[in-house]
């Protein structure tokens, strides 16, 4: 799913303004970004620079104040909440800094969650879950609850959940932010493999240069603007 020019994500003249009382906070100002299909893009920047906000706009989790967001040729900024929910289920895989697993569900049930929104049968869902958990090297721990898993293992479950529907794009918000270096490296290796071997388009927010080095391209956000080089 991409446009004829190979661009999967097209963010154009996007502004995002938050309101705190009577104060207006301009987080993104006239921002433009294109992400080709098959890209592994790292979004870097200091805290409060708008990295996660931009990622949320691309994932249809938030709405821009102005501007357009087009993913695979579809204007997601024009979709209703209901259409957006269905679109996310079909096209977006989300990986969170704190994994966001449901503590009352086992690893395999957490991974299965997005498939509950598809017409797949129970047997088909089980097959997909096994494949996804194998892909992240965690099929032996499928019956464990999140509290019984290490941080790295929980993030692997999070990645398995993100890829289970074979989404158009993977959006990762600080995926190694809560992990030690070793576990973080393993997660980054996994994301790289998904990008290289399976052609997954990945946009990853990080403030860690070590993590961004594993991406194909890095852009920098500062004061609501995007830079190709790290601003001074």
């Amino acid at each position: 799913m991409s446009t004829s020019d190979g661009v999967l994500v097209r963010v154009k003249d996007v502004e995002k303004v938050f309101h705190r009382g009577s104060e207006e906070i301009h987080v993104l100002s006239g921002l433009n970004l294109e992400v080709p299909k098959g890209e592994f893009l790292a979004l870097m920047g200091p805290s409060g620079s708008g990295k996660s906000t931009l990622l949320n706009l691309m994932g249809g989790l938030d709405r821009a104040t102005n501007g357009t967001v087009e993913i695979g040729g579809e204007r997601i900024d024009e979709m209703s909440d209901r259409q957006l929910a269905a679109w996310r289920a079909r096209h977006v895989g989300l990986v969170f800094q704190f994994y966001n697993l449901l503590p009352v569900l086992t690893a395999e049930r957490n991974v299965e969650l997005p498939l509950l929104l598809t017409p797949l049968s129970k047997a088909e869902r089980r097959q997909h879950v096994e494949t996804a958990l194998t892909a992240v090297g965690l099929n032996q721990r499928s019956r464990h609850y999140p509290r019984q898993l290490s941080g790295g293992e929980q993030q692997r479950v999070g990645i398995a959940r993100a890829i289970i529907t074979d989404p158009t794009i993977l959006l990762c918000d600080e995926p190694t932010g809560d992990l030690d270096r070793k576990s973080g490296d393993e997660i980054l290796g996994l994301l790289q493999a998904l990008n290289r071997e399976h052609g997954k388009t990945i946009v990853m927010v990080t403030h860690d240069p070590h993590a961004s080095a594993r991406a194909k391209r890095t852009v920098y956000l500062d004061k609501g603007q995007l830079f190709k080089e790290k601003p001074e």
Binding site: G59, A89, R90, L94, L117
Partner: peptide, 9 residues
């Protein structure tokens, strides 16, 4: 999280 995954309001 559920809503982010696509569950409706």
């Amino acid at each position: 999280t559920l809503r982010a995954l696509g569950f409706g309001a």
